[in-house]
């Protein structure tokens, strides 16, 4: 067990953590904006899966990971319109709508997988390659961990800053937060509540699309139907445990990513503990985090409550 924390292996764990955190960061920052706009969207899991499937299909048929990313993100943006229609126009129970989307995504994926992939030679695809940043990647330890990653990883590290700036330093960000706290105030001023919520949902879906596509193209070597494996739910946990504040959410994400990275390496090194113990760690940690970090002071007041004019 102790050998996991020494020398090159430890650096490898940290580098893996950064790579594992990438899709989670994308999805979490998107979902954070959605939730700050008062929409309790639990379809992150299904949206990431859609992003991954589309990315896989396009990457294996065209050979271009960047085109695959673009199409995956567009598909997720389209999917978000369904959620917007059901939650904003019809004002249905938001969590049931999310549940339905998750079912739809996993069902369609399974259908597609059983029809085209199972029992055949799965199509090969080219994923994203690591890009070493000149000079910075030569720094010992840090160079390997932080500056020899994929382009999207660098983007994902700037994303929390961008989301923070958007939410707290721009007028539109203030309005989005207002939609989640007191939609009536915005409506009285003649600003569209539904329009902002629709855009917030779409931003969330697009970011989950990035997350799912990265998981496929930057992290995995083959497609499996349970590729997302609960990461979409961990993202929701991270937002609650992080009290809806961007940088605390990032902190929770890194806890999950570190646990998963340790798990992967423990399997490779051959620790005598069953590998299932490591697989289950992030989910146990999520319950511990939620039970321990109970501050909900920044939870949007109108989260999950459809806005109706009186």
């Amino acid at each position: 067990m102790l050998e996991l924390f020494q020398g090159p292996l430890f650096i490898s764990i940290l580098a893996a953590m950064v790579r594992i955190a990438t899709p989670l960061l994308f999805s979490a920052m998107g979902e954070l904006v959605t939730q700050r706009a008062g929409i309790w969207n639990i379809s992150v899991e299904g949206t990431m899966l859609l992003g991954a499937v589309v990315a896989y299909v396009i990457a294996s048929s065209t050979g271009s990971p960047w085109l695959a990313l673009l199409v995956a993100v567009l598909a997720c943006a389209l999917l978000s319109l369904i959620l917007s229609f059901v939650t904003i126009v019809l004002k249905s129970e938001q969590f049931i709508a999310g549940l339905a989307l998750n079912l739809l995504a996993s069902g369609l994926t399974l259908f597609w997988f059983q029809t085209y992939i199972i029992g055949r030679d799965p199509p090969k695809f080219a994923g994203f390659e690591a890009v070493e940043i000149p000079y910075l990647s030569d720094i010992p330890v840090l160079g390997t961990v932080l500056f020899s990653q994929r382009v999207l990883t660098y983007v994902s590290f700037l994303l929390p800053l961008a989301v923070w700036f958007f939410l707290y330093r721009t007028r539109y960000g203030l309005e989005v937060r207002c939609v989640g706290e007191n939609p009536k105030a915005l409506d009285v001023k003649g600003l569209s509540v539904g329009g902002r919520q629709c855009l917030a949902i779409m931003f969330g879906s697009v970011m989950s699309g990035f997350g799912g596509a990265f998981l496929m193209l930057g992290y995995s070597d083959r497609f499996v139907p349970d590729l997302i494996a609960g990461r979409g739910w961990l993202v929701v946990v991270a937002i609650i445990a992080g009290n809806w504040m961007p940088f605390r959410v990032v902190g929770a994400i890194f806890i999950f990513a570190l646990l998963e990275a340790i798990g992967i390496h423990a399997q490779v090194v051959g620790v005598s503990i069953p590998h299932h113990v490591f697989l289950v760690l992030p989910y146990v940690a999520s319950l511990v985090l939620l039970a321990g970090l109970r501050s909900r002071t920044h939870q949007p007041v109108a989260l999950g409550i459809p806005y109706r004019r009186e």
Binding site: L99, G107, L108
Partner: peptide, 23 residues
């Protein structure tokens, strides 16, 4: 030869349509 995954996709669709119909 139609795979059974279609059924769970249909469940999701039924649930969505049901939400719309309920409204």
């Amino acid at each position: 030869g139609t795979p059974a995954g279609l059924v769970s996709a249909m469940e999701g669709l039924v649930l969505l349509f049901f939400l719309c119909a309920a409204v």
